[in-house]
Write a protein that binds this DNA or RNA. Sequence first.
DNA 1: CCGCTTATGTGCGCCCCCGAACAGTCAGCG
DNA 2: CGCTGACTGTTCGGGGGCGCACATAAGCGG
Lengths: 262, 262
Amino acid sequence: MEIATPVTTAMNSVLQALPQTDHQRLLAHSEHVALIYGEVLCEPGNAIPYVYFPNDGSISLLTPVDGHASMEVGLVGREGMAGMGLFLGSRISPVRMLVQGAGSATRMRANAFRQEMQRNSALQRGLSRYLYAFMAQVAQTAVCNRHHLLEKRLARWLLMTHDRAPANEFHLTQEFLAHMLGVRRVGVTGAARQLQEQSLISYRRGHIIIHDRPGLERASCRCYRDVNTIRDRMADEELVGRMEGEGKEEEAPADLVDQLHP
Amino acid sequence: MEIATPVTTAMNSVLQALPQTDHQRLLAHSEHVALIYGEVLCEPGNAIPYVYFPNDGSISLLTPVDGHASMEVGLVGREGMAGMGLFLGSRISPVRMLVQGAGSATRMRANAFRQEMQRNSALQRGLSRYLYAFMAQVAQTAVCNRHHLLEKRLARWLLMTHDRAPANEFHLTQEFLAHMLGVRRVGVTGAARQLQEQSLISYRRGHIIIHDRPGLERASCRCYRDVNTIRDRMADEELVGRMEGEGKEEEAPADLVDQLHP
DNA sequence: CCGCTTATGTGCGCCCCCGAACAGTCAGCG
DNA sequence: CGCTGACTGTTCGGGGGCGCACATAAGCGG
């Protein structure tokens, strides 16, 4: 199951999965806000003012490098929440939170969230599951940065953004893209042109249109699929867990040699 | 505060921070095991048989790339636990768990851990805090992979391993190192020689000796320091939180332009 | 229609790292 | 003592991405 193709009336998945009463109480302490392209919701090292549950659009999490530059390590859409530091017991964000795809979100003040979280075990479970998937995303980004060509990474990035966007087209400059991917703008120019020559996308002065999603998936590295697989497996496991209770354990050791010399 | 220089009689920090009664009950369901260099504790996609609380030595977490190769995204020593998937509600590990520095650990079966975790809120808090620091480590690895030269990344890796090792020297081949860093072995040969020429380390047939730790820190990229800073800030925050209860919030928006054109 | 800003495109030299193949060297063991 | 396997060192061409500088073009306000 994918995040599904963009729809106009989306709703945050974490909130949606909550029992009705929990959901209502949480909404009572929240507000609905627009996410504006380029807006910075929190700087690294600062206290987190709000947590955000995106409905559509997406929030990019950026880690600083060498004190000044910064690049994307994860992307939050309606499948999750931005401000997970609070969930883990810190008021301080280690990352920059940047609106990368315009849209809307439900937001909640830090203190309200902390209180709600303590008494709402369904919310805890939902966010734990999300965190598992998110960590897989960050880890995959780490290896992807190291191994894959820019063109494939760009394709993956566009797919991830498209999954979380309300439409097939969105505002997005090459300068911005270069910043996210941690490369030069001219690098993006070249990679984007190659995707355009394959009729997968088209772009024009900060406006990108996705034409051929399946083609884009083929042009992307496996990381896109692998991250989705891990997320969906987690979701399946949750369902099974609810139905049959506790499962059984399993051993699975091997040796390094198998990896180094397959 | 650093992880501190290696000592012979170390104890896992997460366990140590628990109240006496919690600690005892947890140990009653655990066992002490040796960590053997090169041992694979869990393969990605498999059920997690045990969680490990290292006392000394370290466990490397590896994410697969393109289905076969895999490289390190995080390192677990006595500051944490391996098998965090269980903490987040999944029985399945998304990463390979590989013993990278020989030593010892306290381990616990998956089911026992899940039961203990549910009723032990001190353990939950401790692991949440650790997870926060660990996520920062993974995120930093992602940007580090993208931006920093091999020599600096190697220095960082050696420092991280040294922090978690019981001695100033440890078994470690260049082939292994190349695997962790996601580069060719010959690349490691060159980078390691440069560190050796600066008298920071010496190595010989799978045996590395750290000679000049401060020098190694200077040769490393800032990522080493930055990750430690985040971890320590989290620890401080926890102490303050315990003493004065709830704090106050803070706003901190800015604009992307500040980042792109500082 | 003009000029300014923003966004995209091109060219050039450079260098780190890649892939592959091969040579040297130490350790352990029969 | 010599064999064998494991570990380290060297070389070569190639290419992706870098930093820099400059050229073009689309939007926008006056």
